[in-house]
């Protein structure tokens, strides 16, 4: 469990970090919480020649509501999400997810930005972000740009973050009206990646009609995916048991799980259906 030799820098500012990214080229990697990257390096599945540690850069860790958005700094630790009043009162989906991410030691250091930027469909936050319709702020020497989460994940471990860029902020449309959200994953034991996970966001009007639905799925597709047919089945409906069952069925049909030690394709589709149903109901409960 010893990584290949690598270089290390600890920039004090984003500008310094961008310069280091350019200097070290394609084989440099950003080190955030390190709880995905370092295990891969120790197993020698990943061998970056240089690590640029952004933990010392100030101003990248915050949770605030501003300009109609919930804004989360990329270096915000999972534990900060768990302990935030804003999160626990209005965005319970994060609390659900954080509690299911690894263990307290990992959550004390793992960051939300790293969880997303790693580009792994097995991570939990990507599905949560999709359900929440998040935007991701990507920064580089040429300034900042904003990318919809729907365009963010390009493939296995590849994202919209280009060389020389750093993911700096996550923006989520602020909760409004009768808004509810929930996340759950089936896991073989605590700390495991999801066998299947489902993130659900629901908004209903005063009459109980669903005006917005977001559903993201974890680890049942090569890249994090949105269950679009399921969302469409819900919006405009009264969220009856039949509507929910239909959404659950669509999610199970539309995902593309692969068989592995966690379960075969059939079992995973079954789980997606069951968890989708349960999370819609939980989100709805919270929306009331």
């Amino acid at each position: 469990m010893i990584a290949e030799p690598f270089g290390y820098s600890s920039p004090q500012s984003l500008d310094e970090a961008y310069a280091l990214l350019h200097e070290h080229g394609d084989d440099a990697k950003i080190l955030a919480g390190g709880h995905s990257l370092i295990p891969m390096m120790k197993l020698r599945f990943a061998a970056p020649t240089h690590l640029i540690d952004i933990n010392k850069i100030p101003g990248l860790s915050y949770i605030k509501e501003e300009d109609g958005f919930l804004k989360i700094g990329a270096m915000t630790r999972e534990v900060d999400l768990e302990e935030s009043d804003i999160i626990s009162s209005r965005y319970q989906i994060f609390t659900d997810a954080s509690k299911l991410i690894a263990d307290p030691q990992v959550r004390n250091f793992g960051t939300i930005g790293g969880n997303i930027a790693h580009g792994d469909a097995a991570n939990d936050h990507p599905a949560v972000m999709m359900a929440l319709d998040a935007e991701v702020e990507i920064s580089g020497q040429d300034g900042k740009r904003s990318v919809s989460i729907n365009e963010f994940f390009h493939g296995f471990y590849t994202t919209a973050v280009q060389h020389g860029e750093i993911l700096t902020e996550i923006r989520i449309p602020a909760a409004s009206g009768h808004f509810g959200s929930a996340y759950h994953k089936a896991e073989r034991k605590v700390g495991d990646y999801a066998t299947a996970g489902v993130a659900v966001v629901i908004r209903v009007d005063d009459g109980g009609i669903c005006t917005k639905a977001g559903i993201g799925l974890t680890n049942v597709n090569a890249v994090p995916m949105r269950a679009i047919r399921s969302e469409e089945a819900l919006v405009g409906s009264m969220l009856s048991a039949g509507d929910i069952a239909k959404a659950a069925q669509y999610a199970a049909e539309d995902c593309n799980p692969s068989s592995d030690l966690r379960g075969d394709e059939d079992y995973k589709r079954h789980l997606v259906s069951v968890i989708t149903k349960r999370m819609i109901n939980r989100a709805l409960e919270r929306a009331k």
């Binding site: 034991k189 495991d192 030690l261």
Partner: peptide, 16 residues
Amino acid sequence: ILNGTFMDYLVPTAVE
């Protein structure tokens, strides 16, 4: 071996 690390060889913890 398909589960040669603790990621897949599931040793139960206090949680289980």
